[in-house]
Design a protein around this nucleic acid. Structure first.
Lengths: 155, 155
DNA sequence: CCTTGACTGTTGCAGTTGCAACTGTATAAC
DNA sequence: GTTATACAGTTGCAACTGCAACAGTCAAGG
């Protein structure tokens, strides 16, 4: 066997590994906030965030597209949120296959309380970056997302 | 109840969400490479990568620290890799609690074949960024990692 | 009307993960 | 030597996840 030098790879400089670590740390730092306060996890938060952004009801399918989360996960998250009284399900009148989802007043209250907390926490974490660096980060993420063909959620 | 304007949050601009998506896409794009070829998953790849970086055996604990992965996950990943014949376990002579881990010749061969593939794939994904942008990305990740107190793996 | 194919959302199942409890070993105090 | 504490690694268990199968609905074509 040849003794040719083997190419090495430093995990700590390997982008998928770094992204995974960073994403996990970031999520955990924020998850503590909402999980503890309102008993919801990340998929549930995604549903809440999607519905909270709009005033009119949206279908589960819409949430799936916006959050790029598997429909079974969304289905179960919606189930939990309904049990918690944060979300209401209703049949769509035009297409009875769809389930229209809407925040309840209680859900809206949670959303209104949660969003400032999360934005503040995000802000705290990003505070290690200058304004210019944050713009760079945003720009770089945009480019990478587009390159993965992660198309924005068409409204 | 007051009708004060509720602060909204666009998930698609929310950093933990974006990081999670990006990390998942990135990992999946690469996982296909090694999972298909050698029947290993991400935790197993991390063990392989850590051991492959060094020529001398390392303890499982060392792998845990380097990969920032839970010890139970590492334990099971090592189990699979031993079954596959990629890794060999040996007791440490100085501290019999430790399990020293080492790549077998077969494991080294897999490592040598895998690394160039993965680096090439990473390169392809990052090719949407200019040289300067890549330097920016590296710099930003460094800063964020440090801010999370993600200390480098002390050798 | 009836059939076919596509689509929405739910659920059973199997695989994976993290936590906590456990075994065995080392180290320190007495 | 004995006890107590700390540490390395393994494993049982419960929770979570994705996939695939499923039920119900819609739309097109005959």
């Amino acid at each position: 066997m040849s003794k040719r030098k083997v190419e090495r790879l430093n995990l700590l400089k390997f982008m998928p590994f770094r992204l995974n670590r960073l994403a996990a740390e970031f999520s955990n730092a924020l998850a503590m906030e909402y999980m503890a306060r309102f008993g919801i996890d990340i998929p549930e938060w995604r549903v809440l965030a999607t519905l909270g952004l709009h005033d009119a009801p949206r279908s589960a399918q819409y949430v799936v597209r916006c959050t790029r989360t598997h429909k079974s996960r969304i289905s179960r998250a919606v189930g939990s949120l309904v049990t918690l009284g944060y979300v209401a399900r209703a049949e769509a009148m035009d297409d009875r296959r769809e389930v229209m989802l809407e925040l309840t007043p209680k859900g809206r209250a949670v959303y209104a309380e949660l969003v400032p907390l999360l934005l503040k926490r995000e802000e705290a974490i990003l505070s290690c970056l200058s304004t210019e660096e944050r713009a760079q980060l945003d720009h770089l993420m945009d480019k990478l997302e587009k390159s993965f063909d992660l198309v924005q959620c068409g409204d």
